[in-house]
Amino acid sequence: MKRLGAAVLLSVMICPVVALAGSATKASADHAIASAQTKMKIAASNQDQWIATVDAFKAAKAAEQKGDFAIAEAEAKHAATLADLSIAQAKAQKKLWQNEIVH
């Protein structure tokens, strides 16, 4: 149970890092969205897409549609950051999973 507690605590500390971008335009928002999308494809192919990544990405798309480019860009960057974390997790797990095997 200690391990569970530690892991939950950890994950709480990785909460959102949304900061509004200074001078976002449609182009910069679209760029951020495309970049997040590329990373999310990798995360999905690792069977390790985080729900928070998808939520941030959806928020980015919705803001983009409404013309809120600053929010769109910030949310897309947030999605990209979360996707990066999950890709790092999957990469580390490629080796680490073997330590959990029951012997």
Partner: peptide
Amino acid sequence: KEYFYTRRGQLNFSCASCHVQAAGM
């Protein structure tokens, strides 16, 4: 087998984290 033991998600748990390491808790 790899899927079962691989930690995933934002909480960084594998199936084994709960159903092996914390079984019965």
